[in-house]
Simulated assay, not measured.
Amino acid sequence: MKSEKMHNWLIIILGVVASLTWIYPFVLIFINSFKTRREIFTNTLFWPNETTTENYPRAYEDLNYTESFMNSLMITVASIIVIVLFSSMSAYALSRYPGKMSSVIYFICAITMLIPFQSLMIPLVSLFGRFDMLNRVGLTFMNLGFGSSMSIFLYFGALRSVPKSLDEAAILDGANPFQIFWRVVFPLLKPTTVTVIILNSIRIWNDYLLPSLVINKDGMYTIPLQMYYFFGQYTIQWELALAGLVLAIIPIILLYMFLQKHIIQGITEGATK
Score class of each variant (00 low, 15 high):
48 P>K: 13
96 R>S: 12
243 A>R: 07
8 N>C: 00
40 I>W: 04
154 L>N: 06
20 L>A: 11
98 P>G: 10
170 A>V: 01
125 V>I: 09
116 P>T: 02
123 P>H: 02
173 D>W: 03
55 N>S: 02
52 T>Y: 04
170 A>L: 03
90 S>K: 06
44 T>D: 05
163 P>T: 03
127 L>A: 12
84 V>P: 03
156 F>N: 12
171 I>Y: 11
49 N>K: 14
2 K>C: 02
139 L>P: 00
252 I>A: 04
30 F>I: 15
81 I>M: 13
87 S>T: 11
148 S>L: 14
66 T>P: 01
195 T>D: 00
128 F>I: 01
241 A>K: 03
190 K>C: 04
40 I>P: 12
10 L>F: 01
199 L>R: 02
21 T>N: 03
144 L>S: 00
17 V>L: 14
10 L>A: 06
131 F>M: 11
204 I>A: 10
207 D>W: 05
91 A>W: 09
46 F>C: 06
171 I>D: 09
177 P>I: 12
1 M>N: 06
12 I>A: 10
215 I>W: 01
166 L>H: 03
223 I>C: 11
269 E>Y: 11
98 P>F: 09
113 M>V: 08
33 S>Q: 07
181 F>W: 07
139 L>N: 04
223 I>V: 14
85 L>F: 15
104 V>D: 01
249 I>T: 14
79 S>Q: 08
211 P>I: 10
3 S>D: 05
17 V>A: 14
96 R>V: 09
76 T>A: 06
89 M>E: 04
135 N>F: 00
79 S>I: 06
228 Y>A: 12
136 R>Y: 08
43 N>Y: 01
151 S>Q: 03
73 L>W: 09
140 T>P: 05
204 I>M: 07
232 G>L: 13
107 F>Y: 07
152 I>M: 08
127 L>R: 00
